Amino acid sequence: MTIQKPEDFPYPSQFGEVLGSRMHYVEHGSGDPILFLHGQPTWSYLWRNVLSELEDKGRLIAVDLIGYGMSDKPDIPYDIDDHIRYLDGFIKALGLDRITIVSHDWGSFFGFHYAHRHPERIKGLAFMEAMLTPIPGYEAFDPQTRQFFQTLRASQANAERMMMDENQFVEGILPAMICRQLEPHEMDAYRAPWTDRESRRILCKFPQNLCIGKEPAAIYRKQTAYMDWLQQTDLPKLLVHADPGLLIPAPAVDWYRERLPNLETAFAGKGLHYIQEDQPKAIGQAIAQWIERNGL
């Protein structure tokens, strides 16, 4: 499926061949790579107004996870290990080294997991609304979010109805987790990769695999392993947070500040989960200043 790149995303599209499929990315600038990783249900378009604040800071690369955005949708299960293999392959295909990873949502899971396995290739980690400590249980959610995940994870039929038939993640959760109202062309950009029912089957996977109460166990093991590593490594880290946030509210910022060595924090302003849509300039400027301070 080919989608038209939005006019407000002017960076030239490129494609890398990975495991027999094409992964889409945009690239701008030169120097050491700064790799931007998105989550569910977004794509590299999420970073469009953050990238503009990082001119001259490095080789800016925003990639679409396999199956997302303008990347191919091969016939694979889209399990977490699939995403890990394709992202590993993408980084290898582009020969990336001395990487600063900027991540959000599931992109942070993959970014942290990669950095944990390849610390020698990493210069720094910047993240926001990130998957750090596993969610202890459904009681950690507000009632509406708790009902959403419990219903979706109760059966595959529920997941397919919610994600494929009703397109709830794109039409409901995404706009609800942004403080401002997206413009029609912005909503269209987020809808574009998911225009037919079958394409949306991929969207079932991430909410089914979010680690809640130590399940799924394989995700819990990966997440606790990289979280343990993050509490030991002196790699420069930047946590950008918003008010009230969702995954990282104010009390969590203080908790991480106490436990993650060489962590700086930056407050971006008002925002929920997709804070790049509410505070892109503040996010980009915070990352740019952190890069300068740390000589990254």
Rank of each mutant, 00 (worst) to 15 (best):
M128R: 10
R85A: 02
L272D: 13
V18P: 01
Q279D: 11
D8R: 11
N49H: 09
Q156C: 12
D64Y: 04
A252L: 10
I173T: 07
A176W: 14
A242E: 04
V26A: 00
E160H: 15
D278A: 09
Y25H: 05
S44P: 03
L132C: 07
M227V: 03
Y256T: 07
S52I: 02
G111Q: 03
I275T: 15
G20S: 12
L94C: 09
Y78W: 05
M162A: 13
D188E: 15
R117N: 11
W106T: 00
E129R: 12
D254Q: 03
Y45V: 00
A250S: 09
D75R: 09
E186D: 12
F109G: 01
P251Y: 00
I287F: 05
F267M: 12
K214T: 15
F267C: 12
W106L: 05
F15H: 03
L263M: 00
A266C: 15
Y190L: 12
S108A: 12
E215H: 01
D278E: 13
W290C: 00
R180N: 10
K270D: 13
G124P: 07
G39E: 14
E166W: 06
R293G: 11
I80G: 06
E171Q: 03
P207T: 15
T133A: 10
P184V: 14
M70A: 02
E55H: 05
Q231L: 14
A266R: 10
H116Q: 04
L94M: 15
Y25E: 07
R257H: 03
E186R: 11
K237W: 09
A189W: 05
R117L: 08
A225W: 07
E292S: 07
A252D: 06
L174C: 08
L235H: 09
G284A: 13
E17L: 00
I287N: 10
R191L: 02
T145H: 09
I291S: 11
I275G: 14
E120Y: 00
P184K: 14
P251T: 02
M1S: 13
D75W: 01
G137V: 07
A126D: 06
S103R: 01
G137S: 05
G213F: 04
L35C: 15
E139R: 08
L182H: 13
S103H: 02
N262Y: 00
L296V: 07
E292C: 02
G107H: 05
T151K: 08
G16L: 07
P134T: 11
A286S: 12
D81W: 01
Y138P: 02
D56C: 03
T195E: 08
I173G: 14
P119Q: 07
V102Q: 11
Q156F: 14
R221V: 13
L210V: 15
K92S: 10
P41T: 06
L203I: 10
H83Q: 03
L235K: 11
A189H: 06
S199Q: 14
P12T: 08
I275C: 15
K281Q: 15
I66C: 05
H28I: 11
V253N: 04
V253D: 04
G284F: 02
Q40F: 11
D97T: 01
G295K: 11
G111H: 06
T133V: 06
L87N: 02
Q144P: 01
Q144A: 00
